[in-house]
Every structure is written in C-alpha cells, then in structure tokens.
Amino acid sequence: MTPACELCSLLAGFDADAGQGGALLWRDARLAVVLVDEPAYPGFCRVVWHAHVKEMTDLPAAERSHIMDVVWQVELAQRDVMRAEKINVASFGNMTPHVHWHVIPRYRDDAHFPNPTWAAAQRQTPAEALAARRALLPQLRAAIVQRLAA
C-alpha cells in the first residue's frame, strides 16, 4: 500500500477504524468490499484489490477468478435485498492503480437512469425512494457478509 494513493488511504483508514468514504463490509488477504458513502446510490459497493495492480490481466488467473467471484456475490446480494431494476458492474481505474469494481444498484427513478451514474442527471430521485433504499442497507450488509463468509 502507498499512502499517496486514494484507495490505499481508504483501505488503511478502515484499519484505523476511520471509515472515511464508506463502510468496510468484508476483507480477506487480497481484497476488500466497501459500501460506498454515496447518498444518491444506496447499496453502491466497491470490490477493491489491495495491491497496486492496474489491469485485471496483470493478475494470475486464480486471482482474477477470486475477485470476480466476490463481485458476483456482491451483485447477488444486491439483487436479493435491494430489488433494483438493474445492477451496473464496472471497472475503470483511470485515476488509481488498483483493480477495483463498482457494483451499483440502479432504479428507473434514480437521477441518471438509464444513463451511467456519471452522466448528466435526468431527474431528482424521490426522497422517499432513497429513504426506503437506505433502510435496506443493514440487510444488504448482512447478506454480503453471509455470502462471502460461506
């Protein structure tokens, strides 16, 4: 881990129980699952590889399989609990040298749907819908931990 790296700092913050930028849901020796602090997208998670690895193909096959197995378990937990219209799964990493995956529940009434979350907003998500989705976060946390502990 490199202190100047945003994701290294985030992961180190969880070690110190700072919790900046989200909540650590699960971790093993190779990666972590973080519930992102993104008010407009309750349930948004990141699966972050601990080491500085820029591309998926820089990882050996077994490690690629491991990270994707975790991504799929997070997606399944989101589908079960959040009941989203769609789950977006994306890996960018343009600004940080960590393989990491964004796993984002999407809804027809979210601010950007059907466009990507970084596009221009189409509407404002109804406050009651966001509140209902936030109320599901304890269940989502438990479902992710249960799936990954198995």
Rank of each mutant, 00 (worst) to 15 (best):
L148C: 09
F14V: 06
L59N: 01
R64G: 02
A18E: 15
N94R: 09
L130M: 09
A121M: 09
A132L: 06
P126C: 01
E63C: 05
S65Q: 15
S65G: 14
A149S: 15
N88A: 08
F92H: 04
V89W: 00
R134Y: 09
R108L: 04
G21S: 07
Q122D: 07
A61W: 11
A135F: 08
I67A: 05
A84Y: 02
A119I: 02
V103S: 05
R147S: 15
L130K: 08
E6Y: 10
R106Y: 04
T96M: 02
D109Y: 07
A131C: 12
G19W: 11
N115P: 00
A131N: 13
F14G: 02
D110I: 00
F92Q: 06
K86P: 03
V33N: 09
V70M: 03
N88F: 03
M1P: 15
K54D: 15
D58F: 06
R79G: 09
A12H: 12
E55M: 14
E38W: 07
V33K: 09
S65F: 09
A119F: 11
W72Y: 12
R133G: 05
V74Y: 07
T125W: 03
W49L: 04
V47M: 05
K54E: 15
S9N: 14
D110A: 01
D109M: 01
R27W: 04
D110W: 01
V89D: 05
H102P: 01
S9D: 13
V53S: 04
H50P: 00
C5F: 07
H102G: 03
V48L: 08
